[in-house]
């Protein structure tokens, strides 16, 4: 195994992790502020990808698609929050689980009715096609751009939370809901805004990833489950935790898929090693989650320590 291959895999893990971060950040924010578990977060990711693909093919411009996908997911989020989820903040988690599970069924089937059962086409923008030479290896430019995008969004989000008035309210909301209502903050509008922000992040992730993956019905749920793992590892409600968790999951998953079959190849015959290695690699991040639960049940960065 060459250093170049190892380096390339590390970049792949980083890129995967940053996309997971976009998904997890919204989820963890919504839980931190409103105490809501949203299973339909994966459906918002799917909506982002579908609207991006549809708008990009209608206008011929990927960037317009990206804006449309993000906006559509944010708008859908705001709509869902005001029409349905708002009524559930005071209910127990079971009602939230059922309602958002119902939303998965509705959004999945609704997307199929609107866009048809076949996967949509979404290409990378011409500006970001091809590869760049990173010295050690060639690397696709678009993936490099995804890394840049992910880092930029993470930075923007942390500035938003620490430096702006909205951020102060979000942090206040995480700590004491009654308090900020007493301070005269319009809590309903704040909740809608936070939910739309989380939905927009999921939609952005779906649109960005949709350019290199299949844009198809049901694409959101596998990512949703990974985002859950990220949040459990990072600590619920913590943006920093989501970042660390996402990078851990992204890099360990990528490296596991790459290294485990080779490791088993040392003492098993090759075709058996690939099967056993692949089976174990698919369980690796869940084992990581179990380990974290044993060591730090509240995650690496508990928000309400």
């Amino acid at each position: 195994m060459s250093a170049a291959l190892f380096f390339e895999q590390l970049l792949n893990g980083l890129q995967f992790g940053l996309m997971l971060f976009l998904m997890s950040a919204g989820l963890t924010l919504v839980f931190g502020v409103m105490g809501l578990i949203n299973l339909a977060h994966g459906s918002l990711y799917m909506l982002g990808a579908f609207f991006c693909a549809a708008a990009a093919s209608a206008t011929g411009n990927f960037w317009l698609g990206l804006i449309a996908g993000t906006a559509a997911a944010a708008a859908a989020g705001a709509l869902i929050e005001t029409a349905i989820l708002r009524r559930l903040y005071t209910r127990d988690h079971l009602d939230q689980v059922l309602a958002t599970y119902a939303l998965i069924l509705i959004l999945t089937e609704g997307t199929k009715i609107v866009f048809g059962p076949f996967p949509l086409y979404l290409n990378t923008p011409t500006l970001l096609q091809g590869t760049v030479n990173l010295g050690l290896t060639e690397y696709p430019l678009y993936r490099l751009a995804l890394i840049g995008f992910g880092l930029a969004v993470a930075l923007g989000l942390s500035l938003l939370i620490t430096r702006t008035r909205l951020g102060i309210r979000i942090r206040a909301g995480e700590n004491d809901r009654e308090m900020i209502a007493a301070l005269g903050v319009n809590i309903r509008a704040l909740y809608t805004l936070v939910f739309a922000l989380g939905a927009g992040l999921a939609g952005l992730a779906g649109a960005l990833v949709g350019a290199v993956q299949a844009v198809q019905v049901g694409m959101g749920e596998p990512v949703l489950i990974l985002a859950f793992v990220v949040i459990v590892i990072g600590g619920i409600g913590s943006i920093k935790g989501a970042m660390v968790g996402a990078l851990l999951v992204g890099i360990i998953d990528t490296m596991g898929r790459f290294l485990l079959p080779r490791a088993f190849g040392l003492f098993l015959d090759p075709s058996q090693a690939t099967v056993v290695g692949a089976a174990l690699a698919s369980m690796l991040i869940y084992l990581l989650m179990a380990l974290i639960l044993v060591l730090r049940p509240q995650g690496l960065f508990p928000a309400h320590a």
């Binding site: 195994m1 291959l5 890129q15 596998p222």
Partner: peptide, 21 residues
Amino acid sequence: GEIYTQLGQTDYAAEIAQIRA
């Protein structure tokens, strides 16, 4: 080289890197 990927996998960067190498 022979690789078995996860069913339903959507990101193949790690596999393509191995093909390249």
